[in-house]
Simulated scan of single mutants.
Amino acid sequence: MKPQDHGRDVVLSVRDVTVVYETEEPVTAVSSASFDLHRGEILGLAGESGCGKTTLAYAVNRLHQPPARIASGSVVLHDADGSDVDVLALDEEQLRRFRWSKLSMVFQGAMNALNPVRSIGAQLDDTLRAHAPAMDRRARRARAAQVLERVGVDPGRLRSYPHELSGGMRQRVMIAMAMLLEPQVMIMDEPTTALDVVVQRDILREIVRLRDEMRFAVVFITHDLPLLLEISDRIAVMRGGEIVELDTADTLYRDAAHPYTRQLLGSFPSLSGSRGSFIRTGVHDDRLATSEEIA
């Protein structure tokens, strides 16, 4: 389907991306996916497990390994300095400089993404040493402490190991790691999976607050469509490797065009109280629903 342009400054353009797994019988995991991401926007990417959400995200960030192959399409980051970066044309060294500084990713499963035998500080330092080699040790430590504090984690936790942190704190560390070099785009793959509903809401508030402060754009991936309706500006719905619908969250909720989107909306139990005001609090009221409001 055609990407939509609402007249806002576009930071990332994805056009007709197709990803194929070269097995004995090649499998097309993503087919001709296109969307624009605007500066400061939260774009939700929804759909059932196996529909291609994470595969598309990996393609945008050039993270695929064989047998996966980007068969066609383009991914262009429109840098704040006025230049355009053709992501699919970058060599390995260019990719190393591009990742984390221009586009970063929060991976699903914080405990698995963090190294269990290295402290939080050491892992943040590794990222800075790899992607900001000009920074000295003192500057790296100061930056690590700064971003931890910004996501609501005591900088004293730099000495802690992942198993010493709660699930919510580990997820905040992953967000801090993605923010280290102030990228213009952050891809978040199921960042609140396995967290209880109260911690989930805390993390979502944090994401919205940081987006408002730093004006980075977010691609937020989840199968949880009601959650996306709550925090997203626009939502792309995927099915069978294709984006079948892309529209504003309000329009999608009130007047979804595709039968699959309507099925997704109908597959969740209704909420008590005013569903409309609950769903859009993250966008219209600059706050997210509390645990009492969703009880």
Results as ranks from 00 to 15, higher is better:
1 M>Y: 09
6 H>N: 12
12 L>E: 09
12 L>C: 10
16 D>R: 12
21 Y>P: 02
21 Y>K: 06
30 V>E: 09
34 S>Y: 06
36 D>Y: 15
40 G>Y: 03
43 L>D: 03
50 G>W: 04
53 K>R: 05
56 L>I: 06
58 Y>Q: 14
60 V>C: 11
65 Q>L: 13
70 I>V: 14
71 A>H: 13
76 V>H: 08
76 V>I: 13
76 V>P: 02
85 V>I: 15
88 L>P: 09
93 E>R: 13
100 W>A: 04
101 S>K: 11
111 M>N: 04
118 R>M: 14
124 L>G: 12
126 D>S: 04
134 A>V: 11
144 A>G: 03
150 R>M: 15
156 G>N: 10
163 H>F: 15
170 R>A: 02
171 Q>Y: 07
173 V>L: 06
179 M>L: 15
185 V>C: 10
188 M>F: 10
189 D>N: 09
200 Q>V: 03
201 R>N: 12
204 L>Y: 02
207 I>F: 08
208 V>P: 07
208 V>H: 11
210 L>K: 12
212 D>N: 14
227 L>W: 01
229 L>M: 13
230 E>T: 04
232 S>M: 01
233 D>Q: 08
236 A>F: 05
241 G>Y: 09
243 I>K: 01
244 V>K: 02
245 E>S: 06
245 E>Y: 06
252 L>H: 06
253 Y>N: 03
256 A>E: 04
257 A>I: 05
263 Q>D: 13
264 L>C: 07
270 S>E: 14
278 F>R: 14
281 T>A: 14
287 R>T: 11
288 L>N: 10
288 L>S: 03
289 A>K: 06
290 T>I: 05
293 E>N: 05
